[in-house]
Design a protein around this nucleic acid. Structure first.
Lengths: 350, 350
DNA sequence: CTGTTAGCGCGTTCAA
DNA sequence: TTGAACGCGCTAACAG
């Protein structure tokens, strides 16, 4: 059924030899015309292109890949299983990467789920690899993924660059966004800002929080920084603790949007309005952030920028055999409706 | 840098000839061992496999594809641009399809954005195509996609099967889920159930609503069926109209979750509690359905089932040259917290 | 069971 | 500017 069938007495699947024969040209000329080479007369090229359209001739991609050694395919690897919300980040990143690869005439091969053992040798031959969201990826994993370093790779938000000198890195640095967020709160008139952390150790933001707060002209009080976890419930509990303090913060900055949702919930349960009585800022710009009430102001990683940087680095390695590079991308503040100036009463408390 | 480099004095990229030479075997034997053919002695196979691992030999996929005419690649096409919420459906479908293809040792090539003109001849050679969510796909589009029908294709929730007899079809029939939903409401004690439609003409569910209602033992009153649109706001307005009737429904079934969100909002603004005073059921099982308050009971399309059916149909065409098939997949009810028994007062009204 | 050989379809030399 | 011939790396058919 899908074989070299006959339609109207003509072989449907044509190779370049048969096609060239139809045009009374040699395959060399046809190939050059199709590849847009300069050494073909314009009208020959024109004719070849038209006839290809007319006869429905398309070159066999596999043969081209064999002879050129290129596939124009880039594979996206997500070595870890994420929950739904961080998936949102992955999905948006995948979309951005896909757009970027298409813009360069590459295709993106997606692998959302876990890698299966033993598929290494059966895996598709790709020109490059994007490994995303895998701070914990091991050298062994990396070797398996890249066929012992033979396939150019770029790691987004991956492990320490120094551990994988053969790969390019795009590091996501959220500090600019956090800085913006704190400055925004300060400009609104806040002085005491609470922080709800996600409990992960060694987060740059957490570590540099005192400094960042001070920089924005905010008060740094260790009692205002609590570690929660990842769920909305945990965010709610942490916010409740903060808001019931004798001298509560007038704004809360949560390490993730989900924690911020919990904080909003907690404030509302305590009878506080947002942003009237308390301001809340999240982090991640999760899709739902626009749909909660009030829509959440949040720190957003610039996903298109990260995708652009990653694909650029990868293509430089693929096409120009460039050495691996390291780039850092920032984040910025997305202002919606969960922040406002503190009330006079709240300010009076301290 | 990524060339046939020398590491430890040995060529890193090895072809099957060089590999066979290392083993003192012929390439034929090596090929058969690697392909798991029966006509190789077990210990030869064993040796070949071990040595391949040890020397890091992997066959050139492109050469295999050329000679076998197969790539084990399936491309997913989404010909239309969807909004964020229906994207959610696409994304979940993509995940399910990806799992399914991997289970069969195929890879899924994703194309989330719009197709670009002129990429036809440059497109990757794939074994099959899944076209999703394109009821409006035209024969021309279809021909371009399938290289004039040469590439096996399956359409998920596509146009009338009769219009594309060369493709397999997986139709999504939500009626079983709707039936379940209505029965669930009836079992809770409801009699008067309102319906908020999305305004699309010719929806099977809408057309058969009287019948489905009657089947569940519910009252069919045309006044209780209103057409809204697609936004939350429209859902809210429609629900307000329903709930302000002299003899209002005790439950509302909305054609989409977004409309249901609007209905919940409307009820709450009217001072009605959910599910205390009014029950609400949605349709689509959008991600956010679990996050609203109360979590929304909704009709869910069985995405894994659809994906399974699609891949099965496609692989039958690819591997067994089977004729195109048509299959219908159902939906089911996901019970969360937006439904309860009607209040005695509400029942007394009628 | 193993070795040998002929293509798969194309890009890319070299001559003409 | 064009044509002829070689080879990319592999599978499959056939011969031993």
């Amino acid at each position: 059924m899908w074989e070299r069938a006959e339609i109207f007495g003509k072989s449907v699947i044509m190779n370049i030899v048969e096609f060239a024969k139809c045009l009374n040209l040699s395959i060399g000329t046809v190939s050059r015309a199709l590849n847009d080479r300069p050494d073909v007369s314009p009208k020959t090229r024109q004719m070849v292109l038209e006839k290809a359209q007319e006869l429905g001739f398309a070159r066999n991609a596999n043969a081209r890949h064999l002879v050129t050694g290129r596939t124009f395919l880039i594979r996206l690897e997500c070595p870890y299983n994420a929950d739904v919300l961080s998936d949102r980040y992955l999905i948006e990143m995948a979309r951005a990467l896909e757009e970027e690869t298409h813009a360069h005439n590459y295709n993106l091969l997606l692998r959302l789920g876990r890698r299966r053992e033993g598929m290494e040798t059966e895996m598709y031959s790709v020109d490059g690899l994007v490994v995303i969201g895998a701070p914990e990826v091991s050298p062994d994993d990396f070797n398996a993924l890249t066929r012992r370093g033979r396939t150019p790779a770029v790691l987004i938000d991956g492990p320490e660059p120094s551990d994988f000198p053969n790969a390019s890195h795009v590091c996501v640095d959220t500090q600019p966004g956090v800085r913006e967020a704190l400055q925004y709160l300060a400009d609104l008139g806040h002085r005491r800002v609470g922080y709800i952390g996600s409990g992960f150790p060694g987060q740059h933001v957490r570590v540099r929080l005192p400094e960042l707060m001070a920089e924005a002209g905010l008060i740094w009080d260790p009692a205002l920084a609590v570690e929660a976890g990842v769920t909305r419930q945990e965010g709610s509990e942490a916010a409740t603790r903060l808001l019931q303090m004798a001298n509560p913060p007038t704004a809360i900055f949560a390490r993730t949007d989900v924690l911020a949702f919990g904080a909003i919930e907690a404030a509302q349960q305590l009878g506080l309005s947002i942003p009237g009585d308390v301001s809340v800022i999240g982090h991640d710009n999760v899709e739902i952030a626009t749909l909660v009430n009030p829509p959440l102001t949040t720190v957003a990683i610039d996903i298109p920028q990260v995708a652009k940087a990653a694909i650029r680095a990868l293509l430089e390695m693929i096409e120009q055999k460039a050495a691996p590079s390291i780039e850092s991308c920032g984040a910025h503040l997305v202002i919606r409706k969960s922040c406002g100036p503190p009330t006079a009463a709240a300010l009076a408390v301290r």
